[in-house]
């Protein structure tokens, strides 16, 4: 039992970090970023390339991949999303753009990094063993701790920095924020870059444990969507809660129902639909979503 809870926490920390980026982008621009999973895969591949080709330590590689994704995110926002949002009659048009960017990143990853499963060597060897009740490799503990530290750092940034305050204001009410002198274009770009950076960092963290391959993008996006729906779209604490809930459900489901195959996901999805029918805007979401 303790093992299941620890696994759930570890999964949840990673999921929450992915969902944070997605929900930040959604709250600022009302864009459902279908390319989020692809950004995450890209971060993993960049980390892998930097570590294995240039023999640079893992933690520096992690920072490099975060930076690279931040730049990519900023460029995507400035040259693709911004003009389309301005010209389009309906908000939803950005979905096609996001899906197109997702396909594009997929093909770039395929051409640049190939279709093979990639991984980097473990950063720390050894296994933590507490009386055979909790068995956890040390590197997973380190990654889990980094993920939780990143979440805390992100929350602090959003609450106490000027940029964070501006972004929270934009998420609450765009018109009012503009009237108070918040530079909408600038903070949307920063927000998108930050969201993409988080995706890149998570990809980099995971490459040491499960490795990464091209096909992981789409399913990751779907999972991230589920998390932010559980918590409520566009609400930052909601994304964290949603991430931990999904991580816990997966961990419990996969160990209790393992003999029935894919039934865990069927149950998760079905319960999500029932949950949303009862509470249409998630745990903490705004009613207009």
């Amino acid at each position: 039992m303790e093992q299941i809870i620890v696994n759930g926490l570890y999964l949840g920390a990673q999921y929450a970090l992915i969902a944070l980026g997605l929900t930040l982008i959604f709250s600022l621009m009302n864009v459902m970023n279908f390319a989020h999973g692809q950004m995450y895969v890209m971060g993993g591949f960049i980390t892998y390339t930097v570590v294995s080709q240039f023999n640079i330590p893992f933690f520096i590689a992690l920072i490099i991949s975060g930076m690279a994704l931040a730049v990519i995110g900023a460029l995507i926002e400035k040259f693709l999303f911004r003009p389309v949002i301005k010209k389009s009659k309906r908000d939803e048009s950005t979905m096609l753009l996001a899906a197109g960017i997702g396909f594009f990143l997929d093909s770039v990853i395929l051409l640049a990094f190939g279709e093979k499963q990639r991984g980097v060597p473990k950063i720390i060897d050894g296994v933590f063993n507490w009386d055979f009740r909790i068995i956890m490799p040390y590197d997973r503990i380190v990654i889990g701790c980094i993920a939780i530290a990143m979440i805390i750092a992100f929350m602090l940034l959003m609450h106490y920095s000027k940029a964070g305050r501006a972004m929270r204001a934009l998420a609450q009410d765009k018109v009012a924020a503009t009237l108070m002198g918040v530079n909408v274009d600038r903070y949307q770009m920063i927000g998108f870059a930050l969201g993409a950076m988080l995706a890149g960092v998570v990809g980099g963290l995971l490459v040491t444990i499960t490795g990464i391959n091209l096909g992981m993008g789409g399913p990751t996006s779907t999972k991230a969507f589920i998390m932010i729906m559980i918590g409520g779209a566009g609400v930052i604490p909601g994304a964290i809660v949603g991430g931990f809930i999904l991580g816990m459900m997966e961990s419990v489901g996969l160990s209790v129902l393992s003999q029935y195959g894919d039934i865990t996901y069927l149950l998760i999805f079905a319960s999500l639909m029932i949950f949303l029918a009862i509470r249409p805007h998630g745990l903490m979401g705004k009613p207009w979503g």
Binding site: F26, M229, A233, M273, I274, A277, G289
Partner: peptide, 16 residues
């Protein structure tokens, strides 16, 4: 039940 949802929520539920 699900048509009470709007916007992104409906989109995501149908995706699921």
């Amino acid at each position: 039940p699900i048509l009470r949802l709007r916007g992104v929520y409906f989109a995501m539920v149908t995706l699921v």
